[in-house]
Amino acid sequence: MKKIALLVLVLFCGTSNAQKKKKSTTNPIVAVIITKTENLTAEVIKPNFYIFRNENSIKKDTLLLKAFSSSITPTDCVIKKFVTKSTPLYYVSWTEKMNSETKLKKETIVVTNVQIWNPATKMQVFSNTQTSTNIKEQVFLDKNKTASETQERNRNEGYNFTLLPTGDFTLKNKAVESKYNLNTVTMKYELPQKSADVSKSSKKKKK
Score class of each variant (00 low, 15 high):
R155P: 02
T26W: 08
S178V: 10
Q193Y: 13
V32I: 15
Y91D: 04
I109S: 00
K174C: 09
K179Q: 12
F169N: 04
N99V: 11
S86T: 06
T112M: 05
S100G: 09
P74R: 07
V32K: 14
E149Q: 13
N128C: 06
K106P: 01
K207C: 08
L7T: 15
K2H: 09
T133M: 05
T131I: 07
T146R: 09
D168C: 06
K21H: 02
K2I: 07
K203S: 05
D61H: 09
V125K: 03
D197Y: 03
Y180V: 00
S93G: 08
L141H: 09
I45P: 04
T186Y: 15
L64Q: 10
K203D: 03
K203T: 04
N39K: 08
L141G: 07
E101V: 08
L182P: 04
T35R: 00
I45M: 11
L11G: 13
N144A: 13
K122T: 05
I4C: 11
T25S: 12
V78Q: 03
E101I: 08
V114L: 02
T170R: 07
K188W: 05
G14W: 05
E149I: 05
N156S: 13
I4F: 14
T112D: 12
T84L: 02
T95Q: 13
T133W: 04
L182I: 07
E190S: 03
K36Q: 05
T15I: 08
N173L: 01
L164E: 06
N118M: 07
P192V: 03
I34H: 04
N128P: 06
Y189R: 04
T184N: 11
